[in-house]
Write a protein that binds this DNA or RNA. Structure first.
Lengths: 238, 238, 238, 238
DNA sequence: TATGAATGAGGTTTCATTCAT
DNA sequence: TATGAATGAAACCTCATTCAT
């Protein structure tokens, strides 16, 4: 008993995913009207799994894959080291599943189709504001950096990220751009060929926050607004 | 001589050191009357240092800081493990000096002021073409990814990169943008506040090549041209 | 050129032995009336050898055999590392020769037969005073500690020390004791069987200075005088 | 072949740990129905710790701090290398704790107040006999030599030894001497100022056994008796 | 299922020794 | 003879993984 335990898995995703997941697992065998009981084994197990994932995410973000010690992950998750191996084959499997789990909220944000009643610019701007506030500014942006950092060593991760986030996000962006073109909001027709241009400042903002915010703070939202001015034309003050 | 040497230092830095080193190794068994190496000890030592840097860069790019084994660096450089410690205090010092050395060519590109006789767009486009061809497409782009990946763990590296590359590059970009505004080429005055927007697609291109080019190739130069169309207005076919 | 050299071999023995030795070597081939000339090779070589021995003694005393780095010895001696191997087969040979050389002054002190005109007590007291002042209080006492420390690992050293110092010294002591008994100064006839008793406080003083003088200073000479009072009877104030 | 290995774990601490440990190892392949070790994990862990301490003591005594390999300690203790680090932060911590542990029996001897019914001389002689038999003659005496050897490099060790053994022991000696003076057994009043004189022959005996017993055996007990004759006056044959 | 002590392969670093200059 | 860069064996220490409890 040399090391006091830390039970502060500081939820990274901020989403209620963990809670939901645990609840789901629990309800899967307890019946619809199960009264609240001292959490069953399955519930406890799922909770631990979530705690390990949350702790692992923190550690992997802070140190990268190779430099992260499962010892630290276990301590942060409040479980024994061996317990990790009950849930994940090895460190690599933990890492890959981690990323998958962490990406879910990102996808959720991207996946939610914006209200179609406003202008395309409004839609994109609202989307971007959400993204920047929830990702670029948050620690969650570090997940992106983590993927950039470890992607080449974990093809699975890069593939998954491309499939679930990048290609989807770009499709959505392309659709929005084409809508903007069709509506006459966007003049540059070629933009639809490179939706990356649309999101590039958001990516740059994420990286900037991780590396350079202490050298020079960056108002990501304002930057993005200027970027949109380039695409949609300057906003006229209402 | 237990370990067969690998002489594939796939030159990253662009310096002729690796080439010389390789030549040396080659000549040592090429002819019956192999002339005694005339190079002085100091020269040999400097060559070794260069070889270690080149080898280290390869390995760090391929595996990241923590997962790189100095054993591999030594083998790739064709030196004994202990030799690394004659030139660098420890793994960390090697890494940091490595980055510094590797950044020099990048700085050289940025530092060369473009000819001022053409249009601002031409200047930027020529600059971007050079950058993309020399960085984004090359393995040198991986240096950028390496910095993104390890920066948070190596404040020195991030600081150095910010000082030598980022802040400089942004200043130059800002100056060009202001020139463009003054000449009436650029309409969006706010762009000068966020030169990051100008380079964002180039950054994205670098990352894309590292992670997703196998999923979907990206014509970075064409993308950048479209981006410039947003800023300068669409090119009129001549 | 990372490490500036230190040319401060801080003579440990304090004796002019080194100088004498060098001079001897020089004179051995230069003739009786040789005019002062830029020191010959042989002289320079002998000087270096002495410098290595002096530096080695310092380092071995400070760190013990295993923890001493020849690099440090070379630096302190102001020679290159390889030079050590021109004079000594290896680290072990350096150590053993070192001890031999360092013991010479000790032997010299012991060997000088005291004037036989005073009382035995006076002879011993004068001898002890010299020993304590020159050895116990000086850094030279650490040589004794060094031998105690490394002796079991270096039988040669222990043997040599026993032969040259211990057995000789004890013989001399025994002779003095027997003289004291014969003259009626010493009552305890059995003391001649254990001359170690006579020197024991001096040994303890040496060790005390090395280990505990900072905790509690010890007046070794006064202690020895009290010890002699036990053997010779209390001194009558003249 | 520089370092001959010793496979003779001659128990130094006197604790039964080593014995048990050996028994365990033996039983693990001795019979077909080897009974499952009932000892709890905590017990097993403590046993291992003891085994490491015992093994470390042997090795440190035999080779000194710097030359001792933890690999050998582990092998001698019958544990894996990593196990050492579960119990001790590093080699230095092992060494320091080792000494502390090893000193306990010494302190125990010193701490036991002698029966006050006999003469002071009897008390001291009985004490010295115990000390010499249990320490000087035993390998435990090497602990003293180890402390003398490494003390200057391990101030903690020297401090601890001074505090727990030396200053205590000297106080006790001084008290006994003063008692002897009060009772008229000891004539030399100044002896109380230097209790070191009383124990000096015992110290010398310890060192002698380590270094020179093979050159000339020393009857430490008889020597001490002669020493006491000096202090208390010659014994009258009963 | 959960634990955490134990393992040992593998990594970083040191340093005695060599040898081309 | 002197040098000091280079070597590589060997030491310390870490940590992913296992397994008895």
């Amino acid at each position: 008993m040399k090391q006091p335990k830390q039970n502060l898995p500081k939820d990274v995703t901020g989403s209620p995913a963990a809670a939901r997941s645990a609840a789901k697992t629990a309800s899967s065998h307890s019946g619809p009207a199960a009264p609240r009981r001292p959490s069953s084994r399955a519930v406890r197990s799922a909770e631990r799994r979530e705690a390990i994932i949350a702790a692992g995410l923190e550690e992997f973000i802070a140190r990268g894959f190779a430099a992260t010690r499962l010892d630290d992950v276990a301590r942060r998750a409040g479980v024994a080291k061996g317990t990790i191996y009950l849930h994940f084959k090895d460190k690599e499997a933990l890492f890959e599943e981690l990323i998958r789990t962490a990406i879910v909220p990102l996808v959720a944000r991207l996946g939610a189709p914006p209200a179609l009643d406003g202008s395309v610019r409004d839609m994109i701007e609202s989307f971007a504001r959400t993204f920047i506030q929830e990702v670029a500014t948050t620690k969650r942006g570090d997940i992106v950096r983590l993927i950039v950092a470890e992607g080449p060593r974990f093809p699975n991760v890069a593939d998954f990220y491309y499939r679930e986030v990048v290609s989807r996000g770009l499709s959505d962006m392309r659709a929005l751009i084409e809508l903007g073109i069709a509506r006459g909001e966007i003049a540059q027709k070629n933009l639809a060929r490179f939706p990356q241009i649309l999101v590039a400042p958001a990516i740059v903002a994420v990286i900037w926050q991780s590396l350079f915010s202490k050298h020079a703070p960056l108002d990501a939202i304002e930057m993005f607004r200027v970027h949109l001015d380039l695409i949609f034309g300057e906003r006229r003050p209402t």
